[in-house]
Amino acid sequence: MKELFPIKQINGFVFSLLLTVVALSVYFMDMSYEWGMTILLITAFVQAGVQFVIFMHAGETKDRDVIFSTLFYGVFLALAAVFGSLLTLVWDMM
């Protein structure tokens, strides 16, 4: 019975609800823009990690390496797109 009970998933679910509450608090509480953004960014990335690892079972099969390398490649490209665009269109725009 113990093996069958998805304790990991339940914990994950509670944890991800918690993350949502924390993220929501940014809206309801009175805080500076910087603080709000920091909280949102951190909770968003942790949330995504929880989804991938716990609910989508990344890392539980032989394909572990393929899955994580594509994941990191995707993150890398997303960051390149975001910061490249910021650089081009905002920071360095004459």
Binding site: L87, T88, D92, M93
Partner: peptide
């Protein structure tokens, strides 16, 4: 190939730093 795209619009008005990169 994902890190070069700005070369299609060097003339759009971004600064020399970006264009050099």
């Amino acid at each position: 190939s994902f890190l070069v795209w700005v070369h299609h619009f060097f003339t759009m008005g971004q600064g020399a730093l970006t264009n050099s990169i």
